[in-house]
Simulated scan of single mutants.
Amino acid sequence: MMATTHALFGVVLASAAVGVAPEFAPVALVAGVVGSVFPDLHLYAGHRRTLHYPVYYAVAAVPAVALAVALPGAATVAFAVFLAGAAAHSLMDVLGGGLELKPWQARSERAVYDHFNGRWVPPRRWVRYDGAPEDLLVAVAFGAPALVAYDGPVRTFVGAVLLVSTGYALARKHLAALVERLVPLAPAAVHTRLPERFRDGTDPTPRGEPGD
């Protein structure tokens, strides 16, 4: 799914946290958005493996949420919402397409790496690829309530994220085609450092790591 879809889910998480501890609304919003996009910070290398932990984030989020409910404070609320966002991101990516330059071709069977079980989880493809029409629909579903419930900076932020989501969805397949044209032009030193999916369209299992 798009990073913007994950960010908007972070807003949804923050809204839920506000129901428990309204005085910590700002910190919950920041933690929700940051936590929900955090697993994608390794987008260039080791994508959906290095910072994606579908099991560990979820397990850690349960006691963190319980602690935030029992002892609400800026730190406990932020930590709980951050972990919940990171867990949701890792699990949501399983519902999307595989790890490849053109995931609509459905050639890759690697969605998210499960460190606990030492294997790649196959994609469900409920959302066929990041930037697909259904991905944009999910983003709108996450963002629309916030446009109604909030005003000021939050509404502006959500509106901007939805605008970026729409632009990316319209350009998604064109961007993949652009990468295909530019990669052969890259210097050899740069070309060898590019993610495998940029070079041949898919990400194979790295050497020395478990396969499917």
Rank of each mutant, 00 (worst) to 15 (best):
Y57W: 15
D40N: 10
F38D: 00
A21I: 12
A78C: 02
Y53Q: 13
V34D: 05
L51A: 14
G19P: 01
L67R: 08
V37A: 06
A16M: 12
S36K: 13
E23S: 14
V65L: 14
H47I: 00
A74W: 11
V77F: 13
T50K: 10
L41W: 11
A84P: 01
Y56I: 04
R49Q: 15
G46C: 10
F38W: 14
P26F: 03
A60F: 05
A45S: 14
A64M: 02
A75F: 15
G19R: 15
A70S: 09
D40S: 10
T76H: 08
A78R: 07
A86N: 02
V59L: 14
F82W: 12
H52P: 02
Y56R: 07
V37N: 06
G19Q: 07
L67G: 05
E23Q: 11
V20K: 07
V62Q: 00
V81L: 07
L29P: 00
V27E: 15
V30H: 12
G73V: 05
H52K: 02
E23K: 06
V62G: 01
Y44H: 07
V62T: 02
L71D: 14
A17M: 06
A16D: 04
A17F: 02
L51I: 08
F79C: 15
L41V: 08
A66D: 01
V59M: 08
L43G: 03
V55W: 13
Y56D: 06
S15Y: 13
L51K: 11
G35E: 08
V27N: 05
V37S: 09
R49M: 14
P63A: 12
A45I: 08
L83Q: 00
A80F: 00
Y56P: 00
L67P: 07
L51R: 04
H47E: 01
A60I: 02
A21H: 07
A84G: 06
D40R: 10
S36N: 10
V81I: 15
F38K: 01
G32S: 02
S36W: 15
A74H: 06
P54Q: 09
P72I: 09
L67I: 15
T76R: 04
S36Y: 03
S15Q: 09
R49H: 13
V65N: 01
F24C: 03
V20Y: 15
A17Y: 04
G85K: 11
D40L: 05
G46D: 08
H42D: 14
V27T: 12
A68T: 06
V62I: 14
V20P: 07
A60M: 04
A86H: 08
L51C: 09
V62A: 10
A28R: 12
A16Q: 08
H47K: 01
T76C: 10
F79D: 11
H42R: 13
G32H: 09
P39I: 07
A80N: 03
A61H: 06
A58Y: 06
L83K: 00
V65G: 02
L43W: 06
A80H: 01
A75L: 14
V34M: 10
P26Y: 03
G46A: 12
A16P: 03
V65S: 05
P72M: 07
L43R: 08
T76A: 10
G19A: 14
A60Q: 04
